[in-house]
Write a protein that binds this DNA or RNA. Sequence first.
DNA 1: GCCAACGTTGGC
DNA 2: GCCAACGTTGGC
Length: 157
Amino acid sequence: MNSWLVKTEPELFSFADLLAAPEQTASWDGVRNYQARNYLKAMALGDRVLIYHSSCKVPGVAGVATVVRTHYADPTQFEPASRYFDPQSTVAKPRWVAVDLRAACSLPRLVALSELRAEPALLEPRLLQRGSRLSVMPLRASEYQAIVALADRPQEG
DNA sequence: GCCAACGTTGGC
DNA sequence: GCCAACGTTGGC
C-alpha cells in the first residue's frame, strides 16, 4: 500500500465536503499537471491519501482518504463549461485522469504546515517546499506515519 | 496584496 | 531545442 498527499483549496472542496459527500466519496478531478497526473495513475485501490488544504488561513493536512476507484478519464476535461475544460483533449485520447477518494477517517485535528516544517527529520524537503506546485505527491510510509502521529499529539504552543 | 517559484508557451 | 515571457500556485 502506498501513501500520497493531495492538495485542495478548502473554499472549493474541503475535507469536510468529502465527509459530507454521498458515500463520503468524491471524484478527485481537475488535476492539470502532467507529473501530478502520473501520480494519480500510479494510485492503487486502498492506497492512503492525506488531504491537504492550501491557499487558506491555516494550510495543513485535514484528513485521510483511501482510493476506492483507480484512474479513469477526468470527465471535466470534456465539459466546455467547466473551469477544467481542455479543448485539446478528446474522448478517444483523454489527457487527464481522476480517481475516486473516500474519506477514511478524520484526523483528531488539522496538522498545520508550520508543524510539518518543524519536523525536518521526518519530512523530505520535497514535501511542501516553498513554491512547490505539485498537487499530488507520493509520501514515504514514514512521512505518512509522522503526520498522523502529529495529529494524535496535542498541539504545542 | 505581494512575491517567489515553478510550469507552460511561443518566438527564434 | 533554447530560453525569455507569461500565467498560476500558494505561503506569508
